[in-house]
Design a protein around this nucleic acid. Sequence first.
DNA 1: ATGCATGCAAATGCTTTGCAGCGTG
DNA 2: CACGCTGCAAAGCATTTGCATGCAT
Lengths: 160, 160
Amino acid sequence: MMDTRKELDPLRRALRSADIRMTQQRIEVYLEVVRSSGHPSVAEIFQEIRKKLPSITLDTVYRTLWKLSELGLISPLTSSGGGVRFDPRIEHHHHFTCAKCSRTFDFHSGALDEIPIPRAASDLGQVWDAHMEVRGICSACSKKTLTEADHSGKTKGEKR
Amino acid sequence: MMDTRKELDPLRRALRSADIRMTQQRIEVYLEVVRSSGHPSVAEIFQEIRKKLPSITLDTVYRTLWKLSELGLISPLTSSGGGVRFDPRIEHHHHFTCAKCSRTFDFHSGALDEIPIPRAASDLGQVWDAHMEVRGICSACSKKTLTEADHSGKTKGEKR
DNA sequence: ATGCATGCAAATGCTTTGCAGCGTG
DNA sequence: CACGCTGCAAAGCATTTGCATGCAT
C-alpha cells in the first residue's frame, strides 16, 4: 500500500531514516495532527481518525504520537489540564499559556524567530527547534475575575 | 500558627492578595518546590514533605501545587513522561527538553533574558513571565544511539 | 464563630503493556 | 518470508472528588 502524496514527504523521510515502517495508521495520525489548527488532544485525534480508519485503537494512536514526537515531526504540548496535547510544529510559532484555565494560545513573532540558539543550549545536545513559552492570565480569565469581584468582592479560581 | 520567615514573603503576599489562607501544608509545599534544584515530581514532593508533616496526603499536595501555579509562584513543566513536574520559577532560566528521554535541563542566557515580550503575546492577556523552550536530543541519548548503531546497525528508541 | 482547607478513601481517567495475528518492506 | 506493527483487553498509575472534621482568620 504505497501512498505517494507530497504532503507525506516529511513523514516518509523521517520514517525511512529511522528505518521504521510506513503504515496506514501512521499516515493518518500524522496527517490529523499536522493539518489540525489548534492543539488536539489524543481523544480528539482518535475520534477524527476513526472516521477514515475505523479499526484503529486508542493505544495505537498513543504509540504513534510518541513515535512521531521522537522523530521530531510533532511535539507534546506544555502540560496541565487532563491529558497530553500535540502541536503540529509546522512552522515557527510561540505559546501563551494561561495559568488559570491552562489553555495554550499560539502567536507569531518575526523578532523571536531570528534569535540565535544560545551556546548554553546547544551544549546540552543536538537542537531541533526552539520557541518562546509565555505564562500569564488570558483575556477571558482576566475579565471573569473582574466580573466575579464585582459580584462577590472576592477573587475566585477557575476549574483548572 | 504564625510563621514569620522572610523566605515565605512571596507566598504570604500571593496568598493574602488572593484572599487565601496560609496553612502549614501550603508553607511546606511552597518551600519544597522553591528550594528544589531540579524539577521535582509530585511524588517526590510528597515524600519529602511527609518528613516534616507526616499527616499530609497526596491529594492535598496536588491541590496545593495547582493553587500555587494559579498564583504564579511555581509553574508546571513541559509535559510528557509519567506525571507532572514543577519548576520553582525563582529566576530567569530556560529549558532544553530531550525528545527521546523527555528529561528537561535548565540553562541560562543573558541574551535571552533581555528580549522584550512581543506585542503579539501581550495582546493575548496579562504576561507574568516568559522563557525559551528548546527541543532536541540530549548528549546522553545521542551517544546511546551511536553506540547501539555500532552494535546492531539500527537506531532504536528509549523507554519514553 | 465561620467557612475554607485538609484527610480519607474511593472513583475516574489517561496511558501503557503483553500477546497473537496481520501487513509492510 | 521475516519481523515490526496493530488490535484487543486488561493492568497500572496519576489525578480528582465528595464529605465530615479541623483550623486559620
